[in-house]
Amino acid sequence: MKALTANRLSDGEVVFWKNGVWVERLTDAEIFADDAGAGEAEVAARAQPTVVIDPYLIDLVDSAGFWAPVSYRERIRALGPTNHELHGKQAEGGGAVEALRQAHGAARSSGRVNLIRRK
């Protein structure tokens, strides 16, 4: 499973793709089961250069009944600032936040690896 993420240009907020618009919560994001649908969404997202910067796909894993990024970096981005539990998206609490905190996975997302892979 995959989700599409980027940073919003107006304020730098981490956002996720949902049916042609950007939402702030991973729990609201559109989840892609196949590469074709994910690729189409990525192309559409890249057509919004004045809204977001650098949209890319992230790999997801099931965690306590919610989807969580495989990559530790992406879990931090989905939680917001991690300097204090009362800051960012993690301050809302709930099952989705706990699932993100307890998820485990690889060190990198395949989307980012493809950006830095040497040929």
Results as ranks from 00 to 15, higher is better:
residue 87 H to W: 14
residue 90 Q to F: 08
residue 68 A to V: 06
residue 14 V to D: 02
residue 112 R to Y: 15
residue 48 Q to A: 01
residue 24 E to D: 03
residue 59 D to E: 14
residue 109 S to P: 00
residue 81 P to E: 07
residue 55 P to E: 02
residue 35 D to F: 00
residue 88 G to L: 07
residue 23 V to S: 04
residue 69 P to F: 08
residue 80 G to H: 08
residue 19 N to W: 05
residue 81 P to H: 13
residue 71 S to A: 14
residue 63 S to H: 01
residue 105 G to K: 11
residue 104 H to E: 15
residue 45 A to I: 03
residue 87 H to R: 14
residue 32 F to Y: 11
residue 114 N to W: 02
residue 54 D to C: 00
residue 90 Q to L: 00
residue 36 A to I: 07
residue 29 A to I: 04
residue 85 E to A: 14
residue 47 A to H: 08
residue 77 R to N: 15
residue 78 A to V: 13
residue 69 P to L: 09
residue 52 V to Q: 08
residue 103 A to D: 01
residue 31 I to R: 09
residue 57 L to E: 01
residue 12 G to K: 05
residue 56 Y to A: 03
residue 87 H to V: 13
residue 32 F to D: 10
residue 78 A to G: 07
residue 94 G to I: 09
residue 115 L to V: 06
residue 15 V to A: 09
residue 106 A to C: 01
residue 80 G to E: 15
residue 43 V to Y: 04
residue 26 L to C: 05
residue 93 G to Q: 08
residue 62 D to T: 07
residue 15 V to S: 02
residue 48 Q to C: 04
residue 83 N to K: 10
residue 35 D to Q: 05
residue 63 S to Q: 00
residue 81 P to Y: 06
residue 47 A to I: 00
residue 77 R to V: 07
residue 16 F to N: 03
residue 68 A to G: 07
residue 99 A to L: 11
residue 119 K to C: 04
residue 21 V to K: 11
residue 51 V to Y: 00
residue 39 G to I: 02
residue 111 G to Q: 12
residue 49 P to T: 02
residue 101 R to S: 00
residue 92 E to C: 01
residue 99 A to E: 07
residue 86 L to P: 02
residue 22 W to G: 06
residue 21 V to H: 09
residue 43 V to A: 12
residue 91 A to G: 08
residue 76 I to V: 15
residue 44 A to C: 04
residue 28 D to Y: 03
residue 48 Q to L: 13
residue 107 A to E: 10
residue 105 G to E: 12
residue 35 D to W: 01
residue 51 V to E: 11
residue 100 L to T: 14
residue 2 K to Y: 11
residue 24 E to L: 06
residue 60 L to E: 02
residue 8 R to M: 06
residue 26 L to A: 11
residue 110 S to L: 09
residue 18 K to A: 14
residue 18 K to Y: 01
residue 9 L to N: 08
residue 30 E to Q: 15
residue 96 A to K: 05
residue 64 A to M: 12
residue 117 R to C: 01
residue 5 T to Y: 04
residue 72 Y to V: 13
residue 47 A to C: 09
residue 118 R to A: 13
residue 116 I to S: 14
residue 98 E to Q: 15
residue 104 H to Q: 15
residue 16 F to R: 11
residue 81 P to T: 15
residue 40 E to H: 10
residue 67 W to D: 06
residue 56 Y to Q: 05
residue 53 I to G: 09
residue 20 G to H: 03
residue 83 N to C: 08
residue 27 T to Q: 05
residue 31 I to Y: 02
residue 109 S to Y: 06
residue 53 I to T: 13
residue 98 E to K: 15
residue 112 R to C: 06
residue 83 N to E: 14
residue 1 M to V: 10
